[in-house]
Write a protein that binds this DNA or RNA. Structure first.
Lengths: 246, 246
DNA sequence: CATCTAAAATTGGTCTGACCAGCTGGCCAA
DNA sequence: TTGGCCAGCTGGTCAGACCAATTTTAGATG
């Protein structure tokens, strides 16, 4: 920590050290700002690198070195021959979060445990804060599940959206993002497991649907603790089912 | 969501789409591997960019474009005239996590709420899983606090380490990283508040210290629920004190 | 010989210009 | 209308050069 302090130890004297922001970092900040403040919306195409050079008045190297991290962060997406595009909002920061949270991680025990913690709390907060729009969105996913009990793929989509909408209903952006990234990671795993035993899938869907209903009711009622308990039960069941398959 | 499905809609047919790995991405993966598998340890210096070019047999552009994201992720640190170094472990992925979790976020309500959730659960798991080494580390921070009740700076260091060690004791890497990044973000805020009213600081330290003791005792006893409750109380108190200052 | 200083070598950051491979869109022939 | 072709654009890569900060070396100084 000392060397860290040293590097931060800038001149406080009248002759303050100029914050030597590198050119590319400056551009990163600018573009990132344009994205977060909505000037650039998901799907939008950025000017070509060569045009950006003229805009910013810098070399192409700097532009490219600015785009690279943004691409790595999942904010942008480069397509050869076509251009650079703003990534879908859902994917933004997904990659760095995955890197940061999962990085080298091998097992999914931590993942399951963290998910459990996040989702139960999310259910709690959603029950306390969900607005009419949130409730409608959640209910829609529940209905969607009911109509697709025999179509695992579609059912799973609605299942995922159910948790997605609950996370959104918490009105807590951090929680929202966390749940999404962790769920995204678990999703692939779920897909694998389910495809292994398609016969059991229907029974699982039945159970899952009923549990989702309970959760939704609790949230609609505004009963935080009930929602938390219902979600707890649901996640535990789901996890057990999945782990039983391995 | 539809456009997302479209973009993902890759050929499942026998004519699967080739994953065109770019040169720089390959290098990113390699270097990242060297870091995570321990070949490159924090503080280590990488070969100069020009040397890496020869090693990988690619142009300097590619090397630099590979290093850029790693630097942005906080895995590496570039120092002009000196070289590129592997960042301290604590800082790794810190930046992308901050970006991803906090990004544009303005207020800290979400932050406080998320922290509360994470820390209470961390206390719970720590109580169930802390090994002798963990307990010793936690106890050391408690003792450190006791000896520095009048030195806010040092006290705060031990305070931070207390929570740090608890997070580590959960044995859950994801939880560990999450707590660190969120705490790091809150830390600056804590610093500001405390410096505003140095007079009250001592009284706060007194209270804080006692609460930490209670938490530690619960963890040592292995009483998860007690640890959770104690942490809950502590965080709520601390948050209230801080918010009262604004 | 120890010490301070100035030059030389090294390093990351930036610029330029060039080439490649993939995509786009329009044109033309079948 | 269909299919193929070609020109032009785009991101990806490379090479060589220069800059500014830093480290190292060599020299001058005491």
């Amino acid at each position: 920590m000392s060397e860290r302090a040293d590097s931060k130890q800038q001149q406080i004297d009248p002759f303050r050290q100029v914050a030597r922001a590198t050119v590319s970092d400056t551009i990163v900040t600018q573009i990132r700002g344009l994205i977060t403040n909505g000037t650039l919306k998901p799907g939008d195409r950025l000017p070509s690198e060569r045009d950006l050079c003229k805009c910013f008045g810098v070399g192409r190297t700097s532009v490219r070195e600015a785009l690279k991290p943004l691409i790595a962060m999942g904010l942008l997406e480069g397509r050869v021959g076509s251009g650079t595009f703003v990534a879908a909002e859902m994917g933004q920061f997904q990659k760095p979060l995955e890197w940061g949270l999962l990085g080298d991680l091998s097992g999914q025990d931590d993942l399951v445990e963290t998910r459990h913690m996040l989702e139960t709390n999310a259910a709690y907060w959603a029950a306390l804060r969900a607005g009419p729009a949130n409730l409608a969105a959640i209910e829609a996913t529940v209905l969607g599940m009911a109509e697709n009990l025999r179509q695992p793929d579609r059912f799973q989509d609605f299942d995922a959206n159910f948790h997605f909408e609950i996370a959104r209903a918490t009105q807590n952006k951090i929680l929202f993002r966390l749940i999404n990234v962790i769920r995204g990671q678990i999703q692939t795993w779920i897909g694998e497991r389910l495809s292994l035993s398609p016969d059991r899938t229907e029974a699982l869907a039945e159970t899952s649907y009923r549990q989702h209903q309970v959760i939704f009711t609790a949230i609609k009622t505004g009963d935080g603790e009930a929602a938390r308990a219902a979600m707890d039960h649901h996640i535990q069941t789901a996890t057990r089912d999945l782990q039983a398959n391995r």
